[in-house]
Design a protein around this nucleic acid. Structure first.
Lengths: 140, 140
DNA sequence: TTTTTAAATGTAACTTTGTTGCATTAGAAT
DNA sequence: ATTCTAATGCAACAAAGTTACATTTAAAAA
């Protein structure tokens, strides 16, 4: 996203345009992979406050601009919601977690069919992460 | 599992039969749902040491007797490996995480078909958690 | 049965991550 | 330019994960 897109995106949520929010959105939109908060903070070179980044991530997630995904080691990672529209939060996509490079990437366009559950169970959301070796690490 | 089964199970892994290990296996086998370490510790009434429980869980998981699953809030939970044989660790089963009672249960016998990934991606394991309302909470 | 020894435990301590309260700062509306 | 609320920074604390080391215990050997 360029500066104008970020500005417009923030305005649409009612969140004020602040340096930390812009920086977080910029970094996440530059990445294909999901970033943990510590990873994000290294990109800032320590200029931003840990608590502020925490709250920015929380708020951006609440507004549906980004989503949080836990990798197979239980680390929270954040990625831009690319396939989410303003009105429909589209969480039900697949994540791939490489056991070599540890990267978590969103496989938005791969269709996941939800298995049918026993009677009485109601599905609200799915969290599907495939663990394996990504195409980049496969080549090496 | 009864005491004899637990003893035999531990012997098969080469792990010594100790009180904490027996207690952990007993509690986990009594539960349908996956337990977090703090939850386990409350069952012990604080008699067991936090670090010891941590190491027991780690070791039991390494030996394939239990498995760790992260719930949708990123909390590590542990459950007995019921459908795992001695020689084949069967992680690829579905978990259901109720948003009401927060319980995580294993849906061992529901078949999950793994979506086909782009070329170059190699699947090693899957982590599939469905978030929703369980049959018990649905009735209430 | 006693001795031996490696494995398991308990204690202490430290790291990382998540989280809240409060005083200060800054964005944007007037 | 002023005002007001939202956002930030700081301090502090909680919880979970993790390691080192001294002590204890399970089980093998004598």
């Amino acid at each position: 996203m360029n500066d104008l897109q970020i500005e417009e995106t923030l305005r649409s949520t009612g969140l004020k345009k602040t340096s930390v929010r812009v920086a977080v959105l910029k970094h996440l939109s530059d990445e294909i992979k999901a970033l943990s908060q510590p990873e994000l903070e290294t990109l800032f070179e320590g200029r931003e406050n840990r608590v502020t980044v925490y709250r920015v991530l929380r708020d951006l997630e609440e507004k549906g601009l980004i989503h949080k995904v836990y990798d197979v080691e239980g680390t929270a990672r954040f990625a831009l919601c690319r396939s989410c529209t303003e009105h429909q939060h589209h969480d039900e996509h697949l994540h791939f977690n490489c056991i070599e490079c540890k990267n978590v990437i969103c496989l938005d366009d791969i269709n996941v069919n939800i298995p049918s559950l026993p009677t009485g169970f109601k599905v609200k959301n799915i969290h599907f992460t495939i663990e394996g070796i990504c195409e980049k690490c496969n080549k090496i």
